[in-house]
Amino acid sequence: MMDTAVLLVVLITTIRSTTPLLFAALGGMFSERAGVVNIALEGIMLFGALTAAIVAQRTEFYVLANNPDANVWWTSWFGVLAAMLVGALIAWIHAVVSIKYKADQVISGTAINLLAFGVPAVVLQSFYKNTSDSDKVLNPLPLWGLENFEFSPLTYLSFLLVPIAAYVIFRTPFGLRLRAVGEAPQAAASVGVNVYRTRYAAVMISGVLAALAGAFLSIGNLDGFNRGMSAGQGFIALAALIFGRYQPWQVLGACVLFGFFRALAIRLGGDNILPSALVDNLPFVITMFVLAGFIGRSRSPKALGKPYP
């Protein structure tokens, strides 16, 4: 039977597995609340993970090559920063294609996911002469917390972002505009809101957050990049977003639930209750039920997926 130690392990793994989902889902919330479907979350996450790992690994490599005794605590943070920039850049591409050129947002997002399928292999090949893994990052992000109960700073940040996102979306003028352009862009435009600029901002915020999720995966949770590392978590985040009805606190709940399934799947890997290959799929099944309206109905923003004007 499960004793406290096991419970603690499951709890810690849950919190860790929740982090990337939460980042990506909150990112998706900004974008989709503004009316732009962001299937590209998965791809941007991979780009973020790749950038964080490579930038951290390369800078620390050069710094240490020049001065072996250098204190290189900052290189991983440098990697996180670079990941955020790249995330914003990739999201900007999605924004240009789907906002300026009014392309089908799903197709644009798919193109970015496809890009994230190919680009890492090409980049890894040129840096590390193999197509699947980066070199090991010697100084990944630190762990903060009590003994046996420590987490990456990004984990704290992700949970902190929930109230911040709730405040921004429901209590600030920017949030009001964001929701307005997602529900009724014409009406928002008629009172002077710049629909394009708001949507660009929203999509780029979502890119930064998704890239943070990726950075957590590569240098927060592990110490390097590998190509399969996102493993559909961007899509699970999308599912959590729908399950959480586009509300920050409910999204948090959905992410924790899905993170718990993940932790359970890892925990059950060596146990004899349910095969982990099946537990892993619970989030997907639940999301399908939610979408069909079997478990509570999720209402998406009215103008979601529609190019403006």
Binding site: L114, L115, F117, G118, V119, A121, V122, Q125, T131
Partner: peptide, 8 residues
Amino acid sequence: EIVTVLQA
């Protein structure tokens, strides 16, 4: 994989 990039 440059072909995949081309596709994307």
